[in-house]
Amino acid sequence: TYTWNTKEEAKQAFKELLKEKRVPSNASWEQAMKMIINDPRYSALAKLSEKKQAFNAYKVQTE
């Protein structure tokens, strides 16, 4: 089980997950979700809006 003390740690864990699963920077949210949804870190960020925000930040960083 994973635990995160801060929102920032949770966001980092979520981005690490995207990186580890090699989600391409041109992937849509739907494509990315299919690649990461079974990992416990997918739940790091509770709100869908937070997940999408972190995903978009990840995409910008990896382009």
Rank of each mutant, 00 (worst) to 15 (best):
L45V: 05
R22I: 06
A57W: 11
Q61S: 13
F14I: 01
P24L: 04
Y2A: 14
E30N: 11
Q12K: 09
A27R: 03
F14T: 00
P40W: 10
A44W: 04
K34E: 12
A10V: 03
R41H: 01
K51F: 04
E50T: 04
N26S: 11
A44V: 04
F14E: 00
L45I: 10
K34L: 12
K59Q: 09
F14C: 02
E8T: 08
Y2S: 13
R22G: 12
K7L: 12
L18C: 06
K34W: 10
T6Y: 04
N5S: 10
A32E: 00
P24E: 04
A46T: 14
Q53Y: 09
I36S: 01
T62K: 08
S49H: 12
T62H: 13
L18Q: 00
K21R: 11
K21W: 05
K51H: 02
L18R: 00
T1I: 15
M35V: 05
E20D: 14
R22T: 05
E63I: 14
T6V: 04
Q61G: 11
E16D: 14
K7R: 07
K59L: 09
Q12W: 08
M35C: 07
Y58F: 07
K51M: 07
K59V: 09
P24W: 03
F55T: 03
E20P: 00
T6E: 06
A57P: 01
D39Q: 00
M33H: 08
E8D: 08
T1P: 15
S49T: 08
N5E: 15
K11V: 15
K47M: 11
S28R: 07
F14V: 01
I37M: 13
M35H: 05
L18P: 00
T1A: 15
S28W: 03
A54C: 10
A27S: 09
D39I: 01
D39G: 00
L18I: 04
S28D: 08
S25M: 13
E16M: 09
L18D: 00
D39K: 00
N56D: 12
N38S: 14
E63L: 11
P24C: 06
Q61M: 14
V23Y: 01
T3V: 14
A46Y: 09
E30H: 11
E16R: 06
N38K: 10
N5Q: 13
M33D: 05
E16W: 05
V23E: 00
Y42K: 01
Q31R: 09
Q53D: 12
L18V: 02
W4I: 04
E50Y: 05
S28F: 04
V23S: 01
K59T: 07
M33T: 06
M35Q: 06
K11R: 13
K21I: 04
T3Q: 14
D39F: 01
K15H: 15
K15R: 14
L18N: 00
W29Q: 00
L45C: 03
F55I: 02
K51Y: 03
F14S: 00
Y2W: 11
R22S: 09
A27P: 01
T6R: 01
A54K: 01
A44T: 04
M33V: 11
I36M: 05
F55H: 03
A54R: 02
A46K: 12
V23I: 08
T1V: 12
A57F: 08
L48T: 10
T1C: 15
E16H: 07
M35I: 08
Y58N: 03
S43A: 13
A57I: 07
A44S: 08
K51L: 06
Y42T: 02
K51W: 05
Y58L: 03
E20L: 04
P40R: 08
A57V: 09
E63T: 12
E63R: 10
V23C: 04
Y42R: 01
E16L: 08
S43D: 11
Y58S: 02
L48C: 10
K19M: 15
A27N: 04
M35S: 05
I37A: 11
S28A: 06
M35W: 05
Q31V: 11
A13W: 03
F55V: 03
K52R: 10
K47C: 14
P40L: 09
V23L: 04
Q61C: 14
K11W: 15
L45H: 02
K59Y: 04
T6D: 10
R41L: 02
T3I: 13
Q12R: 09
T1S: 15
P40K: 06
N26K: 06
T3F: 12
V60C: 15
A54T: 08
S43C: 14
V23R: 01
K15C: 15
E9R: 02
Q31T: 12
I37Q: 12
V60L: 13
L48I: 11
E8W: 09
Q53I: 09
F55Y: 06
A46E: 14
K52M: 11
A32L: 02
Q53L: 10
K34Q: 12
R41E: 01
A10T: 03
E9G: 05
W4T: 06
R22P: 02
Y42Q: 01
K51A: 04
T3S: 09
T6N: 08
D39E: 04
K19W: 15
M33I: 08
A10Y: 03
I37G: 07
P24N: 04
N56T: 10
E50K: 04
N56F: 12
M33L: 09
N56G: 08
D39L: 01
K15I: 15
A13F: 04
K11C: 15
K21G: 03
Q53F: 07
N5R: 07
Q31P: 01
K11N: 15
M33S: 08
R41Y: 01
K59N: 04
I36H: 00
K34N: 12
E63G: 11
A32H: 00
M33Y: 08
Y58D: 02
S49V: 08
K7W: 06
T62W: 11
N5F: 13
E9M: 04
A54L: 07
L18M: 06
K34D: 08
N38M: 11
N56I: 13
R41T: 03
T6P: 03
K19I: 15
L48E: 12
T62M: 14
K34T: 11
M33F: 05
N38P: 05
A46D: 12
I36L: 05
R22A: 09
A44R: 04
K52Y: 07
S43I: 08
S25Q: 13
T3G: 08
K52D: 03
L45E: 01
A46R: 12
A44G: 04
Q12M: 09
N56Y: 15
Y58G: 02
L48V: 10
S25K: 15
E20N: 05
N56Q: 13
S28E: 05
E16I: 05
E50H: 05
P40H: 09
Q12I: 09
K11H: 15
N38L: 10
A46I: 08
M35P: 00
S49R: 13
V23H: 02
R41G: 02
T6G: 05
A13I: 06
P40E: 07
A10S: 06
R22H: 11
M33W: 05
W29I: 02
E50I: 03
N5T: 12
K19S: 13
L45Q: 01
N5D: 12
I37V: 10
E20T: 05
S43H: 14
S49D: 12
E20G: 04
V60F: 14
Y2E: 15
L18K: 00
P40Y: 14
Y58K: 01
K34I: 11
Y42L: 02
A46L: 08
T62Q: 13
K47W: 06
S43M: 14
T6K: 03
A44D: 02
K52H: 07
A54N: 03
T62D: 08
S49Q: 08
Q61P: 05
I37L: 10
V60A: 13
N38V: 07
W29Y: 06
S28V: 07
P24A: 07
A32Q: 01
Y2H: 15
A10F: 03
W4D: 10
K47F: 09
Y42N: 02
K52Q: 09
Q31N: 09
A46C: 10
N26Q: 09
R22Q: 12
E63V: 12
Y58M: 03
A46W: 12
K11Q: 15
N38F: 09
S28N: 10
V60Y: 10
A13H: 07
W4C: 12
A27L: 08
N56H: 13
Y58R: 01
E9N: 05
Q12Y: 07
Q31I: 11
R22C: 11
A44I: 04
Y2N: 15
S49C: 11
T62F: 14
E50L: 04
E8R: 08
Q31M: 09
A10L: 04
R22N: 11
K21V: 06
Q31K: 07
E9D: 07
P24R: 04
V60S: 11
N26L: 06
Q53S: 11
Y42F: 10
Q31G: 07
A13R: 06
K51P: 02
K51D: 02
K51I: 05
M33R: 14
I37C: 13
Y42W: 12
K52W: 06
A10N: 04
T62C: 14
A57E: 15
K19C: 14
T6I: 04
L45P: 02
L18W: 01
W29P: 01
S43R: 13
